[in-house]
Design a protein around this nucleic acid. Structure first.
Lengths: 117, 117
DNA sequence: GACGTATTACACCATATGGGAATATAGTTG
DNA sequence: CAACTATATTCCCATATGGTGTAATACGTC
């Protein structure tokens, strides 16, 4: 029952794929992770992730466009915050699923080379 | 609630990003959608998605390597099936979040327009 | 106006996707 | 064994997408 209909139209399928791709970048995940405790300005995020401002800004824009973040201006700083907390549920699910069933390429990333098969 | 540990190591972060990217492709989502009712052979999947066989096979291999699919040989056909049903929960979450964010974006666009101009 | 902050524009590079074709492997059948 | 089928694998290529950095531009404050 909880297993849900993937009977989606092609446009919806593309939408979902695009959103997954949006989350499929380590920098953006780090940004979300950085924002999880509370709102942060672009400068603060840039410092914490030790990236350059335009790059961080671009990722923030992408996340904002997708509706995952909201922003607020205070002075000449802009503070971003999480707008859609389901991303954490998503990450949680993926973490469990990923650590549970991992084969070839992934195992060496984690460092546990289990020989199966 | 469900505030989840996103305090992950960089390796884990890459792993999660990689898995999101794996799901961030329309063809692979279509494959999963195709397998949702039950196992299918490579040939059947290839026909239903009207793709070429090496391409479908490649995607199937990727999904298999990630542990999302399992496979079984019967005669000289190989039947793939869903091994990790959490992907459907994931898709469900993303669907809801995506459709919701459309509204959010819309209203924020209106708000921004009012505020600025 | 100058300064600080954030976004946009542009070019560069890496990745990955799809296609095609050819080949390899495994199982079946004659 | 040989021929056939289904799948996997590999290589090459063309291309698209996306991430990153540098420079330029907008926005807001003083």
């Amino acid at each position: 029952m909880a297993t849900v209909k993937l009977e989606l139209g092609d446009k919806m399928l593309d939408l979902v794929a695009r959103r997954f791709r949006l989350l499929g970048d380590a920098t953006r995940l780090r940004i979300l992770q950085c924002l999880e405790p509370g709102e942060q300005s672009v400068g603060e995020i840039t410092l914490r992730l030790s990236g350059n401002q335009p790059n961080i800004s671009k990722h923030l824009q992408a996340l904002y466009d997708a509706g995952l973040l909201s922003r607020r201006r205070d002075g000449n700083s802009i503070f971003y915050s999480i707008a859609d907390t389901t991303i954490f549920e998503l990450c949680d699910l993926v973490c469990h699923s990923a650590t549970k069933s991992v084969r070839t390429n992934y195992s060496e990333l984690i460092g546990r080379a289990r020989k199966r098969r």
